[in-house]
Simulated assay, not measured.
Amino acid sequence: MKHGARRPGEESALAPAAVPPWGLTRMRPFPAAAPVCYARIELDPETQTARCLDAAGQVIEAGKHGTNVRQDTHTETHAGPDGANPGSPRTDTSVDYGPD
């Protein structure tokens, strides 16, 4: 037998008993999935967006998702080192997102 090898079921005085990782002790089965309200999804050739269809082939509303619009705000100051004389411009930009 090689150095440090153990027989099955034999504990070593040097190595502690195996402990499962902490994250595995917190795992639970996934909850049951909610049924989907559509039979199939296809690509609308005109808009290039997905559309949901029921079992009869009728388009159904499958819920809206949020979209947003980027809004940039640019600020420029020309204060010099003493506050009185114009210096080189300093530009600052802030970005915000709002609903479209």
Rank of each mutant, 00 (worst) to 15 (best):
P45I: 01
E61D: 15
S88T: 06
R26D: 06
P8H: 07
D92E: 13
D92R: 11
S12Q: 01
P86Q: 02
P20Q: 10
N85Q: 13
C37Q: 15
P8L: 06
C52T: 10
P16T: 10
T77W: 04
T77R: 03
P31Q: 00
E61C: 05
G57L: 03
R6H: 02
F30H: 11
M27N: 06
D72C: 04
R51A: 06
P89K: 02
D82I: 01
G66D: 07
D92N: 10
Q58F: 06
A84V: 15
L53Y: 00
G57E: 01
V19N: 09
E42K: 07
N85E: 14
L14A: 13
P45D: 02
H74N: 11
P21N: 11
C37P: 15
R6E: 01
P20T: 09
T47D: 06
A32Q: 08
D96I: 10
E46F: 09
E46T: 09
E76T: 15
R51V: 14
H3W: 07
C52E: 04
N68D: 15
P21M: 07
A55S: 11
M27A: 12
R26Q: 09
G23P: 07
M1Y: 08
G57W: 02
P21C: 08
P35T: 03
G4K: 01
E11F: 07
